[in-house]
Simulated assay, not measured.
Amino acid sequence: MKHLAHIRIYTTMLLVFLTFLAGITTTSAQSNNPGPKFGIKGGLNLSQLYVDQPNVEDENMKAGIHFGVFGKIPINSFVAVQPEVLYTNMGSKISYGGSDFESVFGIESGEIRFNLNYIQVPIALAVNVGPLNIHAGPYLSYLLSANVNNWKSSESSPTEIRELETDDFNKIDYGLVVGVGFDIKNVNVGARYNYGLRQVGNDGLAGNLTDNSKNGVGQIYLGFGF
């Protein structure tokens, strides 16, 4: 049932995205601006939660991927709106060394890996200077799934923390994106940073482990427009 709910949410987001593009396309055509561009994109994520706790010994970025579709709809020859629908992996790798988590939550000292999978809808305003574009805007994400693995210092393989489920994390995330890219004919390359404005964990163990931290994700991407 959860998978069906996820599909319905993804379909709704995609319909909103296509409706938005259709409206902007009509406006663009009526104003004699250059036509819109649509395409696919994907790339590398480097994410981190920036947890600040006495028991945290170290934090490292977690590698992931993102991919999806985008549109670039000119407002004039210098400014364009760039909406996207993306599947994106986020999370973090956090090393805990204190005994509090073991005694209270049954988690041994070691590395906790947070794996958070979202559908993300950023809508950026892009300023174009030749092939260079600088873009920024808000994003809204929906959490599809989450799992947390405990790489205990006493074991060589991870153990899933079964007390933590997707419902222990906030389903809705939102924040800002800012980035820079190059448009070379039909090829788009660039880098972007996602700055989350909502805490990841909601209550209980998830809230205690993440200490109300937010998503922070750097991205490198490659896209093809048509």
Rank of each mutant, 00 (worst) to 15 (best):
V16K: 07
Y195M: 13
L143G: 03
P158Y: 11
A126P: 07
K185T: 11
R8H: 04
D168Y: 02
N212H: 15
G106N: 06
V79W: 14
D173R: 00
G175I: 09
Y221V: 06
N188C: 02
L132T: 13
G91H: 04
L18A: 15
P158V: 00
F67Y: 13
N55P: 03
D58H: 12
N115I: 03
Q82T: 12
S153P: 01
N89Y: 08
N188I: 06
V79K: 09
V56S: 06
I73M: 11
G181E: 03
V16L: 14
L144W: 02
N186W: 02
Y87T: 04
L197E: 00
K2I: 12
L125W: 10
L222A: 10
N33L: 11
T210F: 08
V85G: 03
E84G: 10
I123V: 15
Y193P: 00
G68P: 08
K37C: 00
G196A: 09
L49T: 01
G181N: 01
T19Q: 07
E102K: 12
Q219S: 13
A5M: 11
E84W: 10
K37E: 08
V121K: 01
V189D: 04
N170Y: 08
G216K: 07
N188G: 04
N76A: 07
L44N: 00
T25Q: 06
G71W: 08
V148M: 04
I94T: 14
N202C: 05
G35F: 10
P34C: 01
Y139I: 04
G91W: 06
I75M: 13
L144P: 04
I123W: 03
L140G: 09
L205F: 13
E160D: 10
P34A: 07
G137K: 02
T166I: 08
G196P: 11
E155S: 10
V81Y: 08
F226K: 05
S31A: 13
P54G: 01
A22H: 04
D211R: 07
D173E: 13
G43Y: 07
Y193L: 02
V79M: 15
N215V: 05
V189T: 10
F101P: 00
L176Y: 12
